[in-house]
Design a protein around this nucleic acid. Structure first.
Lengths: 202, 202
DNA sequence: GAGGCAACCGGAGGTTCCTCCAGTGCACCT
DNA sequence: AGGTGCACTGGAGGAACCTCCGGTTGCCTC
């Protein structure tokens, strides 16, 4: 997790923006420095002053804020690679499990990730404006949608539920839960959400 | 809503704390001034600087913070009366409706209130330390529990769901929803939550 | 009343956030 | 190579948060 992660990030943000002109060389360099400094700093605590990160990166605070308009978008950039890997394994799970179990597994994995990185939560909220398009929200909804669709066509999931609503409910469960709430608490909430989707037939 | 509301607040916070010694006369006066100034200020916007409220109340910022350790607890104090009335009508609803409909109605009412006062949300989070015990959280859980219990014994609700979890899921739905998300969005989420509680039988 | 002791007051000051804009230097053209 | 425009820089500074503690004052006792 250093070289390769950055490359993934690069590729991704390059591939999804709509022809955004590339950053100037120095700007790109600064941006990466900030991300790297942030990665190191966030490893200690999620609440490091942004000024500290800027200083550590050898960059003015203004530069940091131009690249990452708020703390969340910086966090999102730092964990982009992990976020992508979490949101990408929906097909894998579907290949191995039945839809219901796949959804549970996916949610559990996501929950585990969020539990470790609670600071990311606000960035994943619907409609939160992040810096350069890293539309994590959309990817999450897409992942859920993949699994949900499979469940619908196999008859275990209701067909009248929007994946976006599931994502929202899911994140809500994280939001209204504290670090010291214990994973079993979250697990119960996730189970409730899945229960809401089941048709009851079969 | 002025005189009588305040009296309710008073009575309540006096009746639920465990023999907390009464405030000194001047302190009590200051506390009320702050609440009154806050009520006026919050009517304009939820994000008024607390310093402004303190000044308006003719009180030092230190005094404000001693009484209300954070913005949320001040908000909670200001809306205590409304909060109580929302959390109190569970029995009324049960008297008029079947448990399922009562729960839906209760949730809808609560949602409506929260929609108007989104700033209150953090104060209602489980385990958020408020100033002088105004245990709104517990009251909400109790209200849900009342309705849920009725539903369980009439067989429409599952018996293996904790009311506290329902409350958490409910607030999560508010948390991960934005002001401009439209009430239908929230309504769908609430329906999902209720769906999760139904036994499916009859 | 007077005296004493908490309880309570207030605001100065340290932190962090975030904006704004005069200046700098990269990239592109001739 | 030299010139020009504009993308990008950086930090000063205003706003808000919250803490901390020397000073004040209500309340109880004698």
């Amino acid at each position: 997790m250093t070289e390769s992660d950055l490359r993934i990030t690069e590729t991704f943000s390059a591939s999804c923006g709509q022809a955004e002109r590339p950053l100037r060389a120095d700007a790109q360099r600064n941006r990466e420095r900030v991300i790297e400094a942030a990665r190191a700093a966030f490893a200690e605590s999620d609440s490091v002053p942004l000024e500290h990160i800027a200083r550590e990166a050898g960059v003015g605070i203004g530069t940091l804020y131009r690249n990452f308009p708020n703390r969340e978008s910086l966090l999102e950039a730092v964990y982009a690679a992990e976020l992508i890997s979490v949101t990408t394994n929906a097909e894998d799970l579907l290949a191995r499990y039945a839809p219901e179990q796949a959804l549970r597994a996916w949610m559990a994995r996501y929950a585990e990730f969020i539990a470790a990185k609670r600071g990311l939560l606000p960035a994943l909220k619907a409609g939160s404006p992040t810096g350069r398009r890293t539309n994590t929200r959309e990817r999450i909804v897409a992942a859920i949608d993949t699994i949900a669709a499979a469940g619908v066509s196999s008859g275990v999931f209701r067909s009248d539920v929007d994946s976006d609503d599931i994502a929202t409910l899911l994140q809500g469960a994280f939001f209204s839960t504290t670090r010291d709430d214990g994973p079993d608490r979250v697990a119960r909430l996730l189970d409730l959400i899945v229960d809401a989707l089941l048709t009851g037939e079969q």
